[in-house]
Design a protein around this nucleic acid. Structure first.
Lengths: 212, 212
DNA sequence: AATATGTTTGACCAAATGGTCAGGATCACG
DNA sequence: CGTGATCCTGACCATTTGGTCAAACATATT
């Protein structure tokens, strides 16, 4: 009778699971393409193949869909950084991180745009997430990088800006996809192989310690 | 009697000029912060200190304000790239371009976000601009870079991806400002000085030809 | 089969929003 | 100072949109 809320943790029925997923999938499509305010519940409903009231049976509000997406995807989104291993070989670790992040831009451009849309507008619906989820992780990993620098295993770099640069360069290929594809010469239909080569070169040159 | 359209090119009165400017200024504020769909004419009116009908006296539609902004700002936005001089010293030229672009992110974050918002959503309101304005300029400048590479004056790099990387890295500090400021340690209130140092290092290492 | 529980929807509502309009206020200028 | 052009606004309108609800429909359980 009552909409299935996330509190009582009743075992989900098959229908619930199916529709829940269909809605989030559709919502990701629409939100990432038009932003929160630009998306309408009707559009999401149509994309999900359900009626509008039916969506609001599963999610109390449009906000709830958006927020379910954001929090649900955050872990996936941060997984590559989590894998950065203090015990690994520094340059390999960082290059692997770059590759994984670029791969995410290729495979999950909608997720990238969802976050981009949100942060662009000051992250009103992200609020605590940055402080509470992202910052601790970044603080931890910048420390790892700082140690590598101090040990002379990679060149002198500002750890935070290194991470920003990895994010910016990799996500660019998802977020600004239209622009990239418009500007690239006709022949190159898929920007990613070349992008990977470029970024690997860039970070190799940036991080390899100079003789002296 | 009739709203001042951009056709007859009548000499603008003082009032027209003042209000036109106030509206565009307000519109930039609101559009850049909330996106096209997220902005309301009322918000812009309030920000401009004018009444809603009065805005629509100067601009026929909300779209018209947005499009006036986009086309009006495009030249400013591309100016730094235009200045890239084929006759200059390659690395200096490129580093100067990076600095100018970063400076624009610092001084004109709203403009950066306006374009970002637009391109993120596939640039529905940008349409021909990318093809007709941006592409020719980029094609021209990538040619310059390619010549530098061929002459061995800078290291081997993919010219288009070099430009993408400059855009992405510099605009990141405007577009993702909230994130950058949230993550940076408390002490560093202004990310830009450190960002400049980081980017200059990065592109120096990236572009300096290797001995051999 | 009866009943309870879960799912779906057409019809509807209130608020927000882009835009209009008739008329009033103000300004430029002869 | 009078008159036509420009500028401005309150009131209004049509549409869109997030959300509600009662009732119908489906499914599981006994």
């Amino acid at each position: 009778m009552n909409p299935p809320r996330a509190q009582a943790r009743k075992p989900e029925t098959r229908i619930q699971k199916r529709n829940h997923e269909a809605i989030l999938e559709a919502a990701l499509d629409v939100f990432s393409a038009r932003g929160f305010r630009g998306a309408t519940v009707d559009q999401i409903a149509q994309a999900a193949g359900l009626s509008k009231p039916n969506l609001l049976y599963y999610f109390p509000t449009k906000e709830a869909m958006h927020s379910a997406l954001l929090t649900g995807l955050l872990d996936t989104w941060l997984a590559p950084l989590r894998k950065l291993d203090a015990k690994g070989e520094p340059i390999t670790e960082i290059l692997d991180y770059v590759r994984r992040k670029l791969e995410m831009s290729r495979q999950m451009p909608r997720e990238s745009r969802l976050f981009a849309n949100e942060i662009l507008q000051g992250g009103p619906r992200l609020d605590g997430v940055l402080e509470q989820e992202l910052k601790p992780l970044v603080d931890e990993k910048t420390k790892v990088i700082r140690d590598w620098v101090d040990a002379g295993r990679i060149a002198q770099v500002h750890p935070y800006h290194l991470i920003f640069s990895i994010w910016s360069l990799t996500q660019h290929y998802a977020d600004f996809d239209v622009q990239v594809r418009t500007l690239l010469p006709k022949g190159e239909t898929d920007p990613f192989p070349e992008a990977e080569r470029y970024l690997v070169t860039l970070f190799t040159r940036m991080l390899t310690p100079t003789e002296a």
